[in-house]
Amino acid sequence: MATVLIVGEHDGSKLNPSTARCVTCAAQISGAEVHVALFGADLAAVAPQAAALKGVTKVLSVANPANAHPLAAVLAPQVVALAGPYTHVLGPSTTFGKDLMPRVAALLGVPQVSDAMSVDGPYKFKRPTYAGNAIVTVEAPESRKLVATVRTASFEAAPQGGQAAVEAVAVSVPLPTHTRFVSVSAANSDRPDLQTAAKVVSGGRALGSKENFQLIYSLADRMGAAVGASRAAVDAGYASNELQVGQTGKIIAPELYVAIGISGAIQHLTGIKDARTIVAINKDAEAPIFEIADYGLVGDLFQILPELEKSLA
């Protein structure tokens, strides 16, 4: 029988929604028993959130001052120490999981399946390669522990309704001191989170400046949407890095994605292919974004955006 350990992601107060999506992936591994491991300095706030996810039967809470910040080099040996009884160890394909899980896999001496997007069997998964242009079905050896990151956009979040036991666990393995947290500059925002928002408004190079990019924020606020950006817009300094959507940025699956002044490079399209409805607004009728858009509107964004905002008022 499959037993799955999910490495939960959180910021100390809130469980990251990527964890609930990993639970859904794990639940698709037939007959799996699903546990969530949490690492932090103080897990009193987040452990109950993990325990409340439907499908989770146990939460392992590893509280340790050394775990105050998620440093892969510090967390990996602890994950390995817990991994023993499990057949599968999963983490989200967020920067947290992408950083940590390969280190875990290497310490376990097993390969990793990156970005699992569907479960075809307990050891069989689909994953995207070549910026999503080639989907590979991979089969991992059943004789070894399977480590995978989960492409969170491909799975719905597990619902509430679980009542898992929370077990405080002391992990006594030597932890390295060669890696130290210094600081994090997070854009504090009341806007919806890009990775989990139902609606996303994204701006591209055609915005032309950081000042003009405010038009995107303004429309997003009007719609209750999160803000995203193309790589070109981030490279040009119009928007900050955590807003980047695409192959090397965030992969998202909102109900509605509005691409404004984004031509639609293949690397960008990779990040939005799972969106339910895509709207493209672009001056260039030949822009590749129109090939995947459900609704396209050709025109000058500087005329269209104010008009659009007004009609939503």
């Binding site: 390969p111 399946v113 069989k124 995207p128 390669t129 999503g132 242009n133 080639a134 989907i135 590979v136 079905t137 991979v138 089969e139 991992a140 509605l256 292919k273 409805t277 895509i278 709207v279 129109f290 995947i292 858009a293 459900d294 609704y295 396209g296 509107l297 050709v298 025109g299 269209i304 008009e307 659009l308 009609s311 939503l312």
Partner: peptide
């Protein structure tokens, strides 16, 4: 990790072009 099958991604169905903002808002 045995690669069992490599396939192209499922294509999205072709969308429609709207004439103006009113058309877009209407459709959404």
């Amino acid at each position: 990790l045995k690669s069992v099958l490599v396939e192209p991604p499922k294509p999205r169905s072709k969308g429609v072009m709207v004439k103006d903002v009113a058309g877009l808002v209407d459709a959404l």
